[in-house]
Simulated scan of single mutants.
Amino acid sequence: MSTREFVRAAPGLGGMVVSAVGYRSAGVPPALHRGLPSPYLTLIFSFGGPVITGRTPEQAYGADAVRTDIVVGGLHQDPAYVAQGSHEAGVQLALHPLAARALLGVPAGELTSPPVVCGTDLLGARAAEVRERMCAQDTWDERFATLGGYLRQRAASVRYPAVRPEVAGAWAWLARHRGTGTLSGLADHVALSPRRLTTLFRAETGLGPKQAARLMRFQHARSAVTRAVAADRPPELSRIAAECGYCDHSHLVREFRQYTGLSPTAWLAEECRNIQAGAHRYGEEWEA
């Protein structure tokens, strides 16, 4: 008998953590999972053995796959592939990219190549100690509290130059517009030339403003699609495309192929069981 469990916690940390999900599965057939691009960084503490990832399915199943108990993932525009075993457990966080300096000690722009890095290489031995402590704890509340305390300590102790206000203002503008709007309008908002803004934005996040806007728009569209499926309703792609600022249904389908490697229908067929079990809450914005 297979079991899947997903437990969501209030993120906290003043918006630095966008979502926090505990997950556990047992007796599930091994499968290849697509970790989709999103406008958030990924931080995973695995309790059930290393997370095995690759840029391609072949790498994920090959000798050069990345294997690590603590995963840090930067912003990316292609799916990352995860070779999932029959038993898994851990906590996955979605981090605001502008919180990378405070929580990880580096700007998000330094986390794009490779897209996934070993967390202990970046965070040090203390992170491994925190993971071991979480493995020994009995409840999700204890694990979330342990991890939250560790991140608060890092935020209080890491000393790194602050994010430039123009970049912070540009990210907030893009988020407020849900990835719609023009680069010229964004540049006017922060009083920089489009070229200068793009340079600063890419150095901080690893993506240009247009790329980040596309990810934000896709995130909203994908969330709408998965919420419909989780509620046992057919996703109305034409309506979702219009509500999320796409030109038409075909435009949304092209974005799905760009970011998932599949059409919306094929991706939903692949992810249906995970969505119904609650995994669609990964990486979504917290809603009170």
Rank of each mutant, 00 (worst) to 15 (best):
T3S: 15
R4Y: 06
E5A: 13
F6R: 02
V7A: 12
R8A: 11
R8L: 11
A9H: 11
G12F: 06
G14L: 09
G14M: 02
G15T: 10
M16K: 13
R24M: 07
S25I: 04
G27D: 10
L32P: 04
G35D: 06
P37L: 08
L41G: 00
T42W: 04
I44T: 11
P50Y: 09
T53Q: 07
T53D: 04
T53V: 09
Y61M: 12
A63Y: 03
A65D: 08
V66S: 03
V72R: 00
G74S: 13
Q77A: 14
P79Y: 11
A80W: 01
Y81G: 12
A83T: 01
E88M: 10
Q92T: 12
H96M: 08
A102H: 08
L104Q: 01
G105Y: 10
V106I: 13
G109T: 14
P115E: 08
V117I: 15
T120A: 03
T120I: 06
T120F: 00
D121Q: 06
L122N: 07
R131P: 04
E132R: 15
M134Y: 07
A136I: 12
D138M: 13
F144G: 05
L151D: 01
A155C: 07
R159W: 12
A162I: 09
A162N: 14
A168V: 00
G169T: 02
A172K: 14
T182Q: 08
L183T: 07
S184V: 02
A187T: 07
D188W: 03
L192Y: 00
S193F: 02
L200P: 06
F201G: 03
F201C: 03
R202M: 09
L207F: 05
L207S: 01
L215Y: 06
R217M: 12
Q219H: 15
H220V: 11
R222W: 11
S223Q: 13
A224H: 02
T226P: 00
V229T: 12
A231P: 01
D232M: 04
I240C: 05
A241I: 01
Y246W: 10
Y246A: 09
C247G: 14
S250I: 10
H251D: 15
G261A: 09
G261Y: 07
S263V: 04
A266R: 15
W267N: 02
E270A: 15
N274Q: 14
Q276Y: 09
E284L: 12
W286H: 14
